[in-house]
Design a protein around this nucleic acid. Structure first.
Lengths: 227, 227
DNA sequence: TTGTTCGTAATAGTATTACTATCGTAATAG
DNA sequence: CTATTACGATAGTAATACTATTACGAACAA
């Protein structure tokens, strides 16, 4: 059990939420409130109430709720990438390595939570990312946010997966496209299993967990693709 | 060149927008305004101004802007499914048929727009669906909307694709999961090519159109998967 | 000790959004 | 000729997404 701090660059916030008690409360409370309410119903006023502070105080840390969501998702991507490095750096066989990466992406390795973060409920954060992360880029502000470099975390993770794909199959022409597709699919299929089950074969009431089923689906997909 | 009317069930609206002049203006204007502003900035007030009507009048047709978006996307799915039927019903070879379906999904067949709709700018609508369609289900209201049967169009399209996949590869265990994945990927990859190009190999400035490149990507994916 | 500065938080205010409710009138249907 | 519907106009409400101003408390200097 190790404790790790994930640093998020200063361009994500107006004031570093990790630097003060109030800031850390904002982060942990916002994760739980976003999970409960969803992004649309979530407001800084409700967040302020839940931690006994005020709206204006929260605006000192984050410009608006979209920026806060971008911060949280970036934290999540950085955390995933850290776990991938930590758990796969020793693996020589590239095929085995990719399988392990997919397992981490799908959270199919929940059991051995060898990395824990103080003040961050990673289970809640995962729910938030599954349901809300796409909203960070499905907005007219994409280009603006992208120009500020705030999608670096996602790009970096995608590139890491793409590199492993290329190592297995150097002639394959779509490593990044496949990487971004499986990243998105790992969330979508889990979401569909819970809310729109006729869109997937993954079942919430099976003997196996949704996470494991999603892992096996993506594993089949990748295995056949790179054969 | 044929003219077709796509019927949308009455559970989608308070008053049928196809039944009046104002209703049809609401539909065509909302597609262009959603394309311009994005879902977040889009309001019924702005829509009313753009067609010289009032907010209250629009509320007579749609409960809220999410329901309007659900209506528009359902229309889009129904239109895609109609085109698939129209263009592939005669194809015997299931592999060829699936390729044709994918071509239609990716809009790689834009050239021969043999089906046109009066009052619906299908190019704009496609943009809106690519950028906004996920928001119809990425909300806390998913289950409510789903219980009202408003995702039927998407499910039906997904099922049609899944059936073709099963016809090619009867033992394959994830036909629906693959169908929903490629449906989503066909939008995402096009979006990434325009806004986050480092997430994909698809390029907007290539010799080939984005649509054609997306088609070839998904075709490679499916071909290797079902071999 | 007193005063100044500084960061932070609470108060209050604004423009906009997402509706709802009521009323009047023109067109239309029976 | 009457009853309905369709629509526009007006008004109003609660909440949202912010912003500007003020008040407070600790730290440091004179």
């Amino acid at each position: 059990m190790s404790v790790v701090t994930i640093q998020i660059g200063e361009k994500y916030y107006s004031k570093d939420p990790q630097s003060t008690e109030l800031g850390r409360k904002i982060i942990s409370a916002s994760i739980e409130l976003l999970d409960q309410l969803g992004f649309e119903e979530f407001t800084f006023k409700k967040l302020a109430e839940s931690i006994g502070s005020t709206e204006a105080s929260i605006y000192r840390y984050f410009e608006n709720k979209l920026k806060l969501l971008v911060y949280l998702t970036s934290w999540y991507w950085a955390w995933l990438e850290y776990m991938i490095d930590y758990k796969t750096h020793h693996i020589q066989d590239k095929v085995v390595k990719l399988k392990e990466i997919i397992k981490i992406l799908c959270h199919a390795d929940q059991g051995d939570s060898s990395i824990d973060m103080p003040g961050v409920n990673t289970v809640c954060l995962r729910h938030v990312v599954v349901s809300e992360a796409d909203k960070t880029y499905l907005t007219k502000k994409v280009d603006e946010i992208n120009n500020q470099g705030l999608f670096m975390g996602f790009k970096s993770l995608c590139h890491k997966i793409a590199l492993t794909i290329s190592a297995i199959s150097p002639s394959f022409e779509y490593p990044h496209a496949v990487a971004s597709t499986i990243l998105e699919a790992s969330h979508q299929q889990a979401f569909f299993a819970l809310h729109l089950p006729s869109l997937t074969e993954i079942r919430r009431d099976g003997k196996d967990s949704v996470e494991n089923q999603v892992y096996r689906f993506i594993d089949v997909l990748i295995s056949k693709l790179l054969k």
